[in-house]
């Protein structure tokens, strides 16, 4: 069932953000993997996150054992955070237009983080290619912004 985006979720999805994919390894230990971009539909049914190919191999291996996954995304400016929980659908090599979009997001992120004293090169030197897109079906959203009473369900 499609999820209507609330203001917080829309804000996080439309802003330069960063985040982590959460999966379980073969021992059941929670493992996080950085992603550098994403795309979504609206209303929300699926979220596609882009990650480095060398990291994706591990994620895909985890997802072959347990399809449950999470993606937590935070705005670079104010740390507003949403966690998307759901199940793995598929993965594919990132398409050229997605790569162009991800690079633009990275440039915006570098611009913002430079205001906090982190050199732009820390971000712009990232070598995105090759990258893998991992698509998940989203079931539940949580407001994960660091503050008192965080972790509330959004939908």
């Amino acid at each position: 069932m499609a999820i209507e985006l609330n203001d917080l979720t829309r804000d996080v999805l439309e802003s330069p953000s960063f985040g982590f994919i959460g999966t379980l390894n073969d021992s059941g230990r929670p493992i996080m993997t950085r992603f550098f971009g994403f795309k979504n539909d609206d209303p929300l049914t699926t979220l596609t996150v882009y990650t480095f190919k060398k990291d994706a191999e591990r994620v895909i291996q985890h997802l072959s054992s347990s399809s449950k996954m999470t993606a937590t995304s935070s705005k670079a400016t104010d740390f507003k955070t949403v966690q998307f929980k759901g199940t793995y659908l598929r993965h594919y090599d990132v398409l050229e237009d997605e790569m162009v979009y991800a690079r633009k997001c990275n440039e915006k992120q570098a611009e913002i983080m430079s205001m906090f004293g982190i050199p732009k090169e820390v971000f712009t030197n990232w070598n995105f290619d090759p990258a893998i897109a991992i698509e998940m079906k989203v079931d539940t959203l949580f407001d994960q912004t660091p503050r008192a009473n965080t972790g509330n369900k959004i939908n």
Binding site: F20, G22, T23, L24, G28, R29, P30, I31, M32, S66, K68, M69, T70, T72, S74, F79, T81, Q83, K85, Q144, P146, T150, G151
Partner: peptide, 20 residues
Amino acid sequence: LPSALATVDENGTPNISYIS
């Protein structure tokens, strides 16, 4: 910078939150 924390619930669903 805040740190991301990954945990797992009793149903085997991973969870990621932030700690200071």
